[in-house]
C-alpha cells in the first residue's frame, strides 16, 4: 500500500460516495438505537407510571416488561438490517472502489 494509492482514493468520487453512505447510515442507525435507549431510560427514570401501566388493565404484565422485550427485538432488528442490507451495499461500493483503484 502506498501513500499514492491513499491519495488517489481520497480524490476518487466513488470514495466520497462510499464515505457519505457510511456516514449517513451510521448516523441514522446509531441515532435510532440511542433514541430507543434514551426513551427507555427516561421512561424508567421520570415516568414510572408508564412503566407500571398494564395493557389491558387486568393484565399481570406491566409495560416495563414489554418495553424491555421491545428493546431486545429492536436491537436485533436494527442490527440485522444494518448487517444484511446496509452493510452489503457498502461492501459492494467498497469492492467497486478498490477494484477500480488497484493496479
Amino acid at each position: 500500500m502506498t501513500s499514492n494509492l491513499i491519495e488517489r482514493l481520497q480524490n476518487d468520487p466513488d470514495f466520497h460516495v462510499l464515505s457519505r453512505e457510511r456516514h449517513k447510515s451510521r448516523v441514522f442507525m446509531a441515532g435510532a438505537m440511542i433514541l430507543v435507549l434514551a426513551f427507555y431510560l427516561i421512561c424508567w427514570a421520570y415516568f414510572p407510571a408508564l412503566i407500571n401501566a398494564r395493557i389491558p388493565a387486568q393484565s399481570s404484565v406491566s409495560l416495563g416488561v414489554w418495553f424491555t422485550v421491545a428493546v431486545v427485538l429492536i436491537s436485533i432488528g436494527l442490527s440485522g438490517y444494518y448487517t444484511l442490507v446496509v452493510g452489503r451495499r457498502h461492501d459492494q461500493l467498497n469492492q467497486k472502489l478498490l477494484g477500480e483503484e488497484r493496479p
Binding site: M33, I34, Y40, F67, S75
Partner: peptide
C-alpha cells in the same frame, strides 16, 4: 434495565 442497557449497547458497537 440491565438487559436493555447491555443489549442496547451492542448495536452501537456494531454501527
Amino acid at each position: 434495565t440491565i438487559i436493555a442497557g447491555t443489549l442496547g449497547a451492542w448495536p452501537i458497537v456494531l454501527f
